[in-house]
Design a protein around this nucleic acid. Structure first.
Lengths: 256, 256
DNA sequence: GTAGTCGTCCCGCTGACCGGTACGGTGATC
DNA sequence: GATCACCGTACCGGTCAGCGGGACGACTAC
């Protein structure tokens, strides 16, 4: 199920289609599997995959193809995510050290949150998030924060679209969600209570751009229902996010 | 100065040439600058860059082009680096919490170390390393570890090539380096004393593959000469690396 | 043996890609 | 305010890189 159909009439389109055929949890895909997922003719997939290997975007193993380390390197140079990550790391560390729970840094990309960083310890709550992975905005604390600070059009588009149910607690009523978003703007934090995965709770705060009206990213702390009370961490999460906000403002790196 | 000349006679080659024209610290490059760095005709660069934008590998800003978040996402799916990162994070956290110095996770790629993760606090030592960035193997603790466990051919190739001098302390004599590598195999740790940057010291240990003879990656702790004594952390760095080694062996994810 | 799936290779056709060239805008210099 | 240098963008005919149907051999399963 390809996210957005790239142009298959161009080499580049075919190439990225192949690259994006990999999901977060496949390690290695056979040629046949690539053909199945991309819909490309076998001969074409074979050739393009070969070209990708020579260009160090794919690795060839005896079992099939694999996204290469060269691609990792390239991805880490994406300026926005990388500089965000570098600036954020100390703050994320602080949060982790104080809570010893899983800490996330995420940005919004369309209807989804993309996790830029995830740090946790050995006994971290088993969460569905992965670094570089996606989750729908409406069922995560980070997502709600980013949605609350998004431009009205984008916000409206997501609110009007269908809200996928992930757990019995997932908020699928636009009205309820909208009220929560208003609360987020008021309190500067968002909560999530088992809305994306059973047994998990979460609290998030926005990293604001210079004006203070747009959110560049959001920081969250996640823990299991038993030992973890989101309300207990309002202050430190908000403080971390604000600290990062002002640091990011000092070193400007945004754009349109 | 392009790292390795990709094939400029193919669309894909041109595309990756443009992508790789970005170094770790450029945020945004103008079309003219891309033309200058890649050597492509202006019209061609313009077209390919445009194609890259439609394929969400580049972003267009009013100042020029920028590596896109889509590329970051893709890079994070590179299986080796990503699963390594996920497994390693708890161990890196432990190290950071015990030392409060900068902690690195790196793999070898040719003559260089590529940093997969870098974590540190607000007052971290100013090091030249960047997440996703490269450093020569011969002048870093992580590099020496990885080199010591590399196959003899690769090791010999690097030892025989010229060893770039980064600081007055950089080891540029192959014989001396070779003796250090032997010591690494014996002790299971490597040291670096202001060999890559003035004022910085470092200690690293290998993350070994199942057999125990090949290194998948290496973990290091870095600090400033004043407050930081590498010898003081031999045990914990080695323990962290060994812990990760055995965890990685349990969940196999290597390949050829 | 037969039937399925896999990766690889061949090879003639064609349209995607190429890049020299030209144009309009912008800012520096005289 | 004229000139110049440099930028990004757009055009367009020629052609060769890319295309993909099809064939092949290896392997496995029934």
């Amino acid at each position: 199920m390809p996210h957005q159909p790239a142009d298959l009439d161009t080499v580049l389109g075919k190439a990225v289609t192949i690259l994006r055929a990999f999901t977060v949890d496949d390690q290695v895909l056979s040629l046949a599997e690539l053909v199945r997922r991309t819909g490309l003719p076998k001969a074409t997939a074979h050739r393009v995959a070969g070209d990708l290997v020579t260009n160090r975007l794919l690795d060839r193993t005896n079992l099939g193809y694999r996204l290469s380390g060269g691609l990792f390197e390239l991805g880490m140079r994406a300026s926005v995510e990388r500089s965000l990550l570098e600036l954020a790391m100390p703050f994320l560390q602080d949060l982790y050290e104080r809570t010893h729970e899983t800490v996330h840094l995420g940005v919004r990309e369309g209807h989804d949150v993309v996790y830029v960083a995830k740090i946790g310890g050995h006994r971290q709550a088993k969460s569905p998030s992965r670094p570089g992975g996606r989750m729908p905005v409406h069922c995560t604390a980070i997502g709600k924060v980013l949605l609350a600070y998004a431009d009205p059009e984008a916000q409206q588009e997501i609110l009007s679209g269908p809200l996928e149910r992930r757990t019995p607690h997932t908020i699928v009523a636009p009205g309820l969600l909208e009220r929560q978003l208003a609360a987020v703007l008021e309190n500067g934090v968002a909560f999530e209570r088992e809305e994306s995965a059973a047994g998990l709770q979460c609290i998030a705060a926005p990293v604001l751009a210079e004006g203070g009206d747009k959110a560049l990213a959001a920081i969250s702390v996640t823990g299991p229902v038993g030992r973890f009370r989101p309300e207990a961490h309002v202050t430190i999460v908000r403080a971390a996010a604000q600290g990062l906000s002002s640091l990011a403002s000092r070193r400007r790196s945004l754009s349109s």
